[in-house]
Design a protein around this nucleic acid. Structure first.
Lengths: 362, 362
DNA sequence: TCTGTAGAGGAAACCGGTGTCATATTCAAC
DNA sequence: GTTGAATATGACACCGGTTTCCTCTACAGA
């Protein structure tokens, strides 16, 4: 190092300390000035351009670290014409589902500088599409993630494609369009529940379906019927009643089913909320679970372990699905709409607890 | 209207239609050009400056409406040195609590152009403060809302004040500093529960407290003790056990209390989760609710209505609190840290269901 | 008629980054 | 010692708004 270089280095160190004392948040210009390069070079370093000499990069990085420099996201976003925000558009009535999904997305996003903006919505609102469009366009979202049942809204998917907003849909069935999607095999989950009940010896088994507007309702029903068929049983149309994925609707459906003669000895519910409702109906009608009635739920939501007896249910890896969806989005693979993702990790699994037993009289 | 004015109007109409056909998203420059003013005037209109002639405003607004112009939030944010995002920093283990709070905040924010960014966190993580700081500074958050128990972290509050990020704390007790806060009177809620049990005739009453790290635990305990005192009863230190606001801890605490001789005839729990746990413990020990044991919870979470028998509990207007917090933030009153908000609307209320009855033998 | 003043509006710089394109440096090959 | 490509860097315009400062107009009062 020559004398003049040494002097320059000392001078810049002094300038750096001066700046630190000022307490101001550094901008790219400060970094450039203090490390003796142009701001374009700093920009290159931030954006991991390979066209920067290692020596230069080190010198600049030292200043960046010393000042804990963080690029301004708004300025960056303005230039890039997009933000660093991921939107979660949801209408799922289960709090636990949404929280798990949020958590999963944040697992994937942690440390990347991206953040999660939540947007509950109501598909039946006539302004729904306009509302979502305004949300996405105003915030120039990097991408959106949609769990069921918004994920099943084709008009929304089309809108997002039109305004070129990358999206990942989370669904229980692979939809038609060739796009990014996280799929759980609800058919298999429901079939497993069916086999479990059939193996216990149940013959008269009913199904409390979710609303027909959810694809998952059809998937679970068909999977359940297929599972029963394997065991030589049949799910008659008559044995299916429709609820709304809510506790109250579960009470009603359960009460209706238990009044029938002969009554079913086992009930499979489209989700745990409705299963809890069936518990209530059974108790009101004087039946004891599982002695008089076996019940199986779906989701493995926290309520499943809290009711008595603990509910046998099908566990859905919701957090994992959220994580995968966000990873897919961040990987950028979505931008080209390059095909769907059907990851083996997101397979549902039966969790046997104490709400199922052999039917009485066996 | 003179001939030349008419001609000019026609020309501008034509230009406007041309633009509409282009399909581009309009910028402030487009609006200015098409309405024949400078972009500064458009900016004045966006920001509701009074120094614009009504006639000019109307002319510009017509163009804005025709083109469905939305100002770019990043550009605006860049100039304003802040974003239009509200952060929700939470660590509450109850999914329903968080979802309700989100919903309440979004109720208040709807239509304002602001959005909600969620940020779960872990107070026990040593990087917690650094993490939150990066979150707030990177996104230049407009403000943050903190429900318990993050709201009770003084170090965090101090950090936010230091980096001049407006915040609203939601807490069960009015804290020391003179700042924006939404307070529920947990003391009153717990006292009401106490009076309810005392009026039924219970004498030996136990309290399952939440962790001591939550202020609400102390508030609820003290309020409960005060309510009992009104009725001439005393809450002995011995009658208080400590859980973790979780179902499992409720099971343990319940089991421990029910083994005592004489055992309590009623148990008040710091939240519904733990009450559900006490249900489980009671069942395991062969006691029937409410015949052998009365139970009261706190929060009125969805699980309260789903367990059997439906749980008597204290309802907390969580969504309402979220709404108030966001309104407070948006009103800007927070910026000057102008005193706390103790709104009468957020008073807890006892919801009597079927888990409480007169003690046996009366 | 000549101010003085307040309302209305515009020009240019700025917020903090990026893109484009031109230029400077390095190093292998002739 | 050139030459030429590949690498490395910088100047400057630009993203879409806001702020500062200045001009212009209209109108009340002298």
């Amino acid at each position: 190092m020559t004398e003049s270089e040494k002097a320059a280095a000392e001078a810049s160190d002094a300038a750096l300390e001066d700046f630190q004392r000022s307490g101001r948040r550094p901008t790219i210009n400060d970094i450039a000035r203090l490390s003796g390069v142009s701001k374009k070079t700093v920009s290159r370093i931030i954006n991991l351009s390979p066209f920067v000499k290692d020596e230069t990069r080190e010198r600049v990085m030292k200043v960046i670290d010393a000042l804990a420099y963080m690029p301004d996201l708004q300025a960056r976003g303005l230039a890039f014409r997009r933000s660093f925000l991921i939107g979660l558009i949801y209408n799922n009535p289960s709090a636990q589902y949404v929280i798990d999904m949020q958590q999963g997305i944040l697992d994937a996003v942690r440390g990347s500088g991206y953040e999660l903006v939540v947007h509950p919505c109501d598909l039946s609102n006539p302004n729904f599409l306009k509302d979502v469009r305004a949300f996405v366009e105003r915030q120039k979202l990097f991408g959106v993630i949609m769990p069921p049942s918004v994920s099943e809204d084709e008009a929304l998917a089309q809108l997002l494609a039109e305004i070129e907003c990358p999206y990942v849909r989370i669904a229980s069935v692979s939809l038609d369009r060739n796009e990014a999607m996280i799929v759980t095999n609800d058919r298999n989950g429901a079939a497993e529940a069916a086999r479990h009940l059939a193996d216990l010896g149940h013959k008269r088994i009913a199904f409390v379906s979710g609303p027909t507007s959810f694809r998952s309702s059809h998937e679970r029903r068909e999977g359940f019927a297929a599972g029963l068929a394997e065991k030589g049983l049949k799910l008659a149309a008559d044995d299916v009643v429709f609820g709304a994925y809510t506790f109250e609707s579960g009470v009603e459906c359960g009460a209706a089913l238990l009044k029938r003669k002969p009554r079913p000895t086992a009930i499979f519910c489209g989700n745990d909320e409705m299963a809890a409702g069936v518990y209530r109906a059974a108790r009101d009608a004087g039946f004891e679970i599982p002695r008089d009635l076996s019940v199986v739920g779906y989701d493995d939501s926290p309520v499943a372990a809290k009711v008595w007896p603990p509910l046998t249910t099908v566990k859905l890896p919701i957090r994992e699905m959220g994580r995968l969806a966000a990873e897919k989005l961040l990987s950028g693979a979505v931008e080209g709409f390059t095909g769907r993702v059907i990851d083996a990790k997101v397979a549902p699994a039966l969790v046997v607890r104490e709400s199922t037993a052999k039917p009485a009289g066996r």
